[in-house]
Structures are given as structure tokens and as C-alpha cells.
Simulated scan of single mutants.
Amino acid sequence: MKHIASRDNPNFKALKKLSQSGRERRKRGRAVLDGMHLIESYILHFGQPEEVVVSESGSLRSEISRYLTSGRSGNVVSILSDALFDELAMVETPSGILAIVLQPCPAHGPDQGIDTVLLDGIQDPGNLGSILRSAAAAGFRQILLSAECAQAWSPKTLRSAMGAHFQLDIHESCDLVGFLAGYRGQVVLTALNGAVDLYSLALKEPLAWVFGSEGQGVRPEVAATAQLQVRIPMPGATESLNVAAAAAVCLFETVRQRR
């Protein structure tokens, strides 16, 4: 294990830049995992992380200590003073452990013949992560994000998705219109004024669900590719649902129908 106590340490400077800069993470093709849950989820699917970073106090916590002595932490483990670790942490109450991992990439390009979730301009990382979590739980593996979406591999999105990333094929900065133009299945999007009630649909395979940005919804050019625009019945007085909640309703209605 390497002990780092100085801000001038080159490894610490590199870690800080990686934890704070989305551009740096994209350039290096790396993601920063915060907390044991995300790290364990990554190990389950991809094996050991490239590097593990723990705080001095974190290394004394039973869960982290067991992990460090389990042989699953890899060969590069750095222990930072709590003050230095706090500079890397991305939450108010640091977890005490981070891992640097190679950002998983799909083995091939998007498949236009399988169930897919398309996200058009989802800008809130919390919403994005929640949708990814619902998609994984509902069995939708292929995810396409427009260029206007929040970063799929940002620390906030990762925390919100709770490990769902590692069960999904996530394609970022996609041409949604081009993909849908050649899609060999049913294309459905949600809209407040959608002509069709969600619960009257027959959701057949393959199916592409399209969800739009929190403020503007789906762009007109994307909406034009959909065969169906649906509304979620809301007998209460609420004007609309959060996009993550709407996505969960639609995805699990798909599950219900196909059981």
C-alpha cells in the first residue's frame, strides 16, 4: 500500500483531476466509483479495479478493511490522510473508499432489433441514474443517450444508479433519429398530451421506449419517429410526473404485460 500525505504528490494530483473533471475521465476512459456497493458491483461483472484509494479512517472500517485484505482490491492501493481524501470525495459524508476503473464499453454498436431505452436530453444526473436503475431492473439492457444528456459515468449518475451501469450496454452521444429510423420494432414515447393511454397498449417485442428532457420533453425530430405517443393516466391533481418516475411506470408496465 502507498501512503500519500502531500497535496504535491503527483498521484494525488492525478486522482483529484480525475475525480473533479468529466473531461479528464472521458479522455482517460476511466470512471470513479465511490463506496463499497459500487465497487462490489463492478467486481462482480468485471473483476478487480485498476486502483483503490482509501482514507486513513476508512481503512479502519470493518467492511473496507475486509475488502483490502480479501485479495480483490488489486495491486494498487493508496491510503490518504482524511483531509486529502475529503478533497477527492464527491459527497458531504465521504464513504472512505474510491476505486478507479476502466469505463466499460459495449462490445458492439447499437442493435436496431432489440428492446431499447432512448434518453433525449436528460440533464439531471440523479434522474439519469434512476432511469438506468429502473431499466436494468426491468430487463432493458441497451441504453442510448443523446449528446445533450448528462454524463452516464459521472459520479452523481453512478451513485444514483447503484450499480446498474454494470448490467447495461450504454451508448452515449447517439444519433437517436438515425437509430429510430431503422429500428425494427415498436417506438413509443411518453407525452402529457399523448393520444394513447399507456394501459391500453400492447407492448410487443422489440420495443424502444423514448423519454425526453425534464423541461422540454422529447425533441420534435425525435418524436416524429415514434409510432405511438402515450400518456400515463393520472387521476390525481398532479400536473406531471418526474421523468425518472414516468420511465419506471412505463418500463414496469412492459414487464407486467410480458409476464
Rank of each mutant, 00 (worst) to 15 (best):
I143A: 05
F85P: 05
A136F: 02
K17L: 13
I97V: 13
V53D: 03
R28F: 03
N9M: 02
G129V: 02
G217S: 01
A223S: 01
P220N: 06
L241Q: 07
G113M: 09
L201W: 01
E221A: 11
A152V: 07
L228Q: 06
S65R: 14
F46I: 14
I4T: 02
D175R: 00
W209N: 01
S134P: 00
G139V: 06
N193V: 10
A150L: 10
D34V: 11
I114Y: 14
L38Q: 15
R219C: 07
R159N: 11
D82M: 05
D111G: 08
L102R: 08
D169M: 08
A244E: 08
A245V: 07
M162H: 03
V218G: 00
Y42A: 15
I114F: 12
S160E: 12
E24C: 01
Q142A: 01
L158E: 06
H3A: 13
D8P: 05
L68H: 09
G178H: 02
A152M: 09
V76L: 15
L44A: 10
G74M: 13
K27N: 07
A135F: 00
G126L: 06
Q216E: 01
R23P: 00
G215M: 01
N242H: 12
T116P: 04
V230G: 02
G215E: 00
A246C: 04
L189C: 08
A246Y: 05
R25A: 02
E239R: 14
R133N: 06
K27T: 07
E205A: 10
L168K: 00
S21D: 10
L176H: 11
G74S: 09
R25H: 01
H37D: 06
D34W: 10
D86A: 02
G96Y: 13
V249A: 03
A195G: 08
V53R: 09
M90Y: 14
D120Y: 03
R219F: 07
F12G: 13
L132I: 02
L119T: 04
I43M: 13
W209Q: 02
K13H: 04
I100K: 14
Y183V: 15
L132H: 01
V77R: 14
S146F: 14
S173C: 11
V210L: 13
P220V: 05
A89E: 11
R7K: 11
L15C: 06
A208F: 05
R7I: 11
F166E: 02
S200T: 09
G236Y: 12
V210Q: 12
E56Y: 06
F211I: 09
G29R: 14
D8L: 15
L128M: 05
L192C: 13
E214Q: 05
R219I: 06
V255D: 04
S81L: 04
E56W: 05
R23G: 03
V177H: 03
D86V: 01
A135Q: 00
I170V: 07
D175S: 04
